[in-house]
């Protein structure tokens, strides 16, 4: 695989292959006092972030450095949307300094796809989140986390068959949800989306998942093995029509993960959140910090997943 642009592009075999490679990466770095592996020595990775990000950029940077690649972080002040240098000219500039891989985060859906397929660069392109489209490495690290917890003591080689995964919240603006639905279903899980209709895209009824508007009914109808709470993305929300829901209080009452809802999970059930969290809005601290929470572990797994993705795209190896 040359690029990773969308979780929907991964076949079942490729997806399991990335998860397995990530387990290998995690093990290799866990057992070493010096965590660097020499596999990408001499190659250059540019983290091209047009949008603010803490955990994803740090995660990619750590991953690339652990594989001994040279890393350049580049955060242009404005995108061409805001009349700065055009995306094309930025990418041509990176080409001139012989970049091997571009990890890109961009507010415009499809920007990584354009970078990869417009003849602007020959580098590998890894999507680190584009607009409201995709965030494939997030879905992969979520799948890795779920697999570790729910698919037995030795998850290598396994997929997510038989699991019910529930995603609750702002699906409309969420690239995490879009990536998750694609990847989890590819891996054999059944996905259940729960949100107010204002935060679901028209067309979602044709996605390969169930859709419901009521958390409490959904928890009864599709008891989830993994429950993912999405962040309410205020920064992407239009204020037209007075907003997408009447008030934060009502959102929390209707869709927030509080202790009563947490207690309804099966004994093995886990809680995920892609971060950054709005504590008290979509998730209470009891849920976020409780024993079912895998939120910190998700971040750790993110490094292993990004090592695997960089390795697989840059070394040109298939699964």
């Amino acid at each position: 695989m040359k690029h990773l642009l969308s979780a929907a592009d991964l076949s079942h075999g490729e997806a399991v292959g990335v998860l397995d490679a990530a387990e290998e990466m995690a093990q290799a770095t866990r057992e070493r006092r010096i965590k660097k592996l020499p596999v990408l020595q001499g190659l250059t990775v540019v983290n091209l972030f047009f949008e603010d990000s803490t955990r994803t950029r740090i995660s990619f940077e750590t991953a690339a450095k652990r594989l001994s690649a040279d890393v350049i972080n580049f955060s242009p002040k404005g995108s061409s949307v805001s009349k700065g240098e055009s995306l094309k000219d930025t990418v041509l500039t990176l080409g001139a300094i012989q970049t091997d891989a571009i990890v890109v985060r961009h507010p415009a859906s499809g920007a990584p796809h354009r970078i990869a397929h417009s003849g602007w660069t020959g580098a590998s392109v890894i999507n680190a989140g584009d607009g409201t489209h995709q965030h494939p490495t997030q879905a992969l690290l979520d799948a890795m986390t779920i697999r570790r917890h729910l698919m037995g003591p030795d998850p290598v080689g396994r997929d997510l068959s038989g699991l019910d995964i529930m995603i609750v919240g702002d699906v409309l603006h969420s690239r995490v949800a879009r990536s998750g639905v694609a990847l989890f279903t590819t891996l054999g899980a059944q996905v259940h989306l729960v949100a107010p209709a204002t935060l679901l895209p028209v067309g979602v009824e044709q996605w390969n998942c169930t859709v419901s508007y009521n958390v409490d009914e959904a928890l009864a109808d599709y008891p989830p093995d993994a429950l993912m709470m999405l962040r309410v993305q205020h920064e992407r929300m239009s204020s037209a029509g007075g907003g997408f829901f009447p008030s934060p209080q009502e959102y929390t009452r209707e869709y927030g993960l509080d202790s009563p809802r947490l207690e309804r999970l099966a004994p093995h059930g886990i809680v995920l959140h892609p971060g950054p969290m709005n504590r008290g809005l979509e998730i209470t601290s009891q849920a976020a910090d409780g024993p079912r929470s895998t939120i910190v572990e998700q971040v750790a797994n993110g490094v292993a997943i990004r090592m695997a993705v960089l390795y697989l795209t840059m070394s040109g190896l298939k699964e």
Partner: peptide, 23 residues
């Protein structure tokens, strides 16, 4: 008002591509 920031026809494709919908 129904098309502020709209980028493409609202339907299955816009829902998958994450482009602001134009009903």
């Amino acid at each position: 008002r129904l098309t502020e920031g709209a980028q493409m026809h609202e339907g299955l494709v816009s829902s998958e591509l994450g482009l602001a919908p134009w009903p």
